[in-house]
Design a protein around this nucleic acid. Structure first.
Length: 465
RNA sequence: GGCGGCUUAGCCAAGUGGUAAGGCAGAGGUCUGCAAAACCUCGAUUCUCCGGUUCAAAUCCGGAAGCCGCCUCCA
């Protein structure tokens, strides 16, 4: 069975077929760099990362582009408040974003185009839409005229007549001809201060949607395979991207639209505007390992809402610990007594893993298959029927799985002298059967974040996740 | 008001017609000086509720309740 993905365009799981055999071009809606991203934002990026990794696992060559929105109301406002330049302001959050995705073991996209570096491309696109009469100019701004694009609404399944008319028209959209028309280019306003570009379509700045059309087509071509983002982008953002892109090129824009559901907190969408959000930094400062967050995000199917709780995060951390312990255990196998069923069990685990992910990236099921494997192999090890060769094969498979999941890699860390001395001290005490003293030292070591395990092969240590 | 989605054990979560995966937490046991890790055993006669279809339903159909999201910046 091949890969099937749920396409928002058709609201169905479809067999995935790439435009160009063996190659995939995908675009992921990235962050607006006006603040630290919260973990709900990162759900979208972890999802895109998972998808990309699995496509590579399947043998595709993937080119991924992710935009950085560094020009919009929020970045302008933020920079003005701090009385620094827009680029100085956004640079801070770009850096933070890259630090955060690194912590979450999200692989970097191939290109991270910045909106401010692509004004020319956007202006050209606006010009083309004006030429083709898909757009009009009013008061120095340019708007897309949705009545010229009959299939408008095909992604979100919304009919423009049904939209609540007139409810919330912000001031700068005042002059639009139709309520659903949207800004491609916004005329300069006093509030924009120093932020503007003098262009062929006037003095001002780009609308939000145009950057994704311009930059995705620039790096991926007019027609590419996959576009991802959160469900909140379906309307109006992605709907508008389709209108702009297909209006300009006359060709199909994207084959597969994939959207991840929201992360909730206390039953509500995690959002800056609700004030119920946690940044990655917030959580790391409480002592959590970022990979535990990655695990948590991966453990629920991407199209299912996920209610974030610290209880859930603790559970994720413990589950992750179990996998890490398993890896450590495999690395320590020295027996030569092989188990006849290992090959078969590894094969089953692999096919189970692949079938799960082929089914629209069912990570919950895939993790279930991995834990089934862990349990069976652990039993073999307990029974003494497991050789170092078996362990190597199992490790290789786990590494293969991890090329998709990205949760097993850890920093090699060395014990500092102090802890090494304490371990020696404790072992001396144990030798002399001074159990009380040994336990006291063990507690001291634990308070430093190191857990000891006494095994027949000697005392082992590990770092608490 | 329009549109879409969700509801499975204490928590998380698979499962879309064939008789409830998996993880965390908890209890008991094996092992251990004690722990830890690992293993074994235990937990939903039941899948929000009410009807219906079927030999068979968590899964299909109809209805109800609760919750979430989009329609405005948003992952």
């Amino acid at each position: 069975m091949g890969l099937r993905l749920f396409n928002t365009l058709t609201r169905q799981k479809e067999d995935f077929v790439s435009i160009e055999p063996g190659k995939i071009r995908m675009y992921t809606c990235g962050p607006t760099v006006y603040d630290f991203a919260h973990i709900g934002n990162f759900r979208a990026y972890v999802f895109a990362d998972l998808l990309k990794r699995y496509l590579r696992y399947k043998g595709y060559e993937v080119k991924q582009v992710m935009n950085l929105t560094d020009i919009d109301d929020k970045t302008i406002r933020g920079s003005q408040q701090e009385k620094i330049s827009l680029s100085e302001y956004t640079a801070r959050y770009k850096d933070a974003f890259f630090q955060d995705i690194k912590a979450l073991n999200i692989e970097r996209a191939d290109v991270y185009p910045e909106a401010t570096a692509h004004i020319v491309d956007m202006v050209n696109l606006v010009k083309k839409l004006l030429e083709k009469s898909h757009a009009y100019q009013l008061g120095g701004s340019s708007y897309f005229k949705i009545s010229t694009f009959p299939s408008y609404g095909k992604l979100s399944k919304m009919k423009m007549e049904d939209l609540k008319a007139g409810a919330r028209i912000s001031k700068d959209e005042y002059e639009k001809e139709e309520i659903g028309d949207f800004a491609l280019w916004k005329a300069w306003d006093e509030k924009d201060g120093e932020v503007f570009w003098e262009t062929e379509v006037g003095k001002g700045r780009p609308g939000w949607h145009i950057e994704c059309s311009a930059m995705s087509m620039k790096y991926l071509g007019k027609h590419f395979d996959i576009h991802t983002g959160g469900v909140d982008l379906i309307f109006p953002h992605h709907e508008n991207e389709i209108a702009q892109s297909e209006g300009a090129t006359g060709e199909k824009f994207v084959n597969y639209w994939l959207h991840n559901e929201h992360l909730l907190v206390e039953g509500r969408k995690m959002a800056k505007s609700f004030g119920n959000y946690f940044t990655l930094r917030d959580i790391l400062s409480k002592g959590y390992n970022p990979i535990a967050i990655r695990y948590l995000l991966l453990a629920t199917h991407y199209r299912q809402q996920l209610n974030f709780t610290f209880e859930g995060l603790d559970g994720a951390k413990n589950a992750l610990q179990r996998l890490h312990d398993f890896i450590d255990r495999l690395k320590g196998i020295r027996s030569q007594k092989s188990h006849p069923e290992v090959a078969e069990i590894l094969k089953e685990a692999q096919s189970g893993f692949e079938e799960s992910l082929d089914d629209d990236l069912n990570t919950s099921s895939a993790l279930g298959k991995i834990f089934d494997l862990v349990k069976e192999i652990n039993r073999f090890i307990d029974e003494g029927d497991f050789s170092s060769q078996d362990a190597e094969k199992t490790l290789a498979l786990m590494q293969r799985f991890d090329s998709v999941l990205g949760i097993l890699k850890r920093e090699e860390l060395k014990l500092d002298e102090k802890i090494t001395e304490l371990i020696q001290k404790r072992n001396q005490a144990r030798k002399e059967k001074k159990w009380e003293e040994a336990d006291k030292v063990r507690k001291e070591i634990e308070s430093l974040g190191i857990i000891l395990e006494d095994t027949p092969e000697g005392t082992k240590w590990k770092k608490r996740i």
